[in-house]
Design a protein around this nucleic acid. Sequence first.
DNA 1: ATCCAACTCATACTTTGATATGAGCATGCC
DNA 2: GGCATGCTCATATCAAAGTATGAGTTGGAT
Lengths: 210, 210
Amino acid sequence: MPLPSDEKSIVHVVDDDPSMREALQGLFLSIGLETRTYATAQDFLDTPVPDSPGCLIIDIRLPDMNGLDFQAQLSRTGVHLPVVMMTGYGDIPMSVRAMKRGAVDFLPKPFKDQDMLDAVFAAIERGRQQRAVDGDVSKVRERFETLSAREKQVMLLVTEGKMNKQVAGDLGISEITAKIHRGAAMRKMGARTLADLVRLADVINPRRRP
Amino acid sequence: MPLPSDEKSIVHVVDDDPSMREALQGLFLSIGLETRTYATAQDFLDTPVPDSPGCLIIDIRLPDMNGLDFQAQLSRTGVHLPVVMMTGYGDIPMSVRAMKRGAVDFLPKPFKDQDMLDAVFAAIERGRQQRAVDGDVSKVRERFETLSAREKQVMLLVTEGKMNKQVAGDLGISEITAKIHRGAAMRKMGARTLADLVRLADVINPRRRP
DNA sequence: ATCCAACTCATACTTTGATATGAGCATGCC
DNA sequence: GGCATGCTCATATCAAAGTATGAGTTGGAT
């Protein structure tokens, strides 16, 4: 497992205009941000994206695909990079649609370098936080997967607030066995106390409303 | 305490153009939505807003205040109605700024009636859900406030995962006393089990990260 | 002065939790 | 066959939780 901490952020630029690609690449490189450019949406989708932090700069108008559709497709494809949209001919409804779909920013061309940099910084920061959360959730899930089927059942019932006796009754096993599974679940989940286990369970099984 | 369930939603329209106010009022009334209109931001701020669900339609350009500043001021004033922005002369950066600040939608004038209705429905729905969450949180907080100072301390320590013995040590009291406060906290919070209490505590004291 | 709520503690008892030790049985893998 | 894993259960022990009863102190409000 690679160290996720001090990874370099990568800025991905998707624009069919070569001069814009070069300009942005120069801008980002000037502040030490690794940059990769793509001429089309398909170009980006065909290129394996390393699982590293960063963001995605998309021109709304692409040769092969609408920028908004592209944005929508990314989530489905499993790419969760924060998106900064830019366009030379967009209108307000288009920008609103992009923002509704979660874009970090929407810049009309031409834009000031500083505006783009601000947008990229905001995007990278948003991604960084999202990655931190996702990472925590993943770790908990991984641990949960190391539990046996019974241990999972017992853990979920216990964190519902049921006593060992009730858990045993629900599962049709003896209280002693339930205790053993409970102990194993605590150990495997790294939960020192029941309160910890409850919070871990809520990461896996989020409660809708209190 | 009033019943919060089936309250009527109220649409608040802030626009200095009388014909627009009338048109929108007519549109909303035609589908049975109670509507109130205001000519200026100050007019709205001076009028007591009942704590009922609904939304706020704001023209960006108001005589006394910029719509964006108005939007920003609302949160500070304690008004948390979802906002739909509209404008006759806005540009993309303005719409993006509004969306970043949490606007539900941003409609350029002229707009189709149906677009406005869609926006209002979305806004009301968002507000409804937010109100539900806020209501739940408030209820928990209210209950928590019925606890005595000691009971609060004990509850927080217990939900950190500490045993009664540790709680007693931390607070410099006997374990028996800690148990009494613990029991009182459980009863007053309506927590049947420790798992319940942990989740209630997390509503009051949200954990940053697992 | 009186009253009340909060806080404190003790004793006693019951229930539950946590853990260790030992063991039987089924499944699947090498 | 041998072996590991998971699931099951019993007995036993100790720690902790939960509850009930009774009682003393303090500080603030009436």
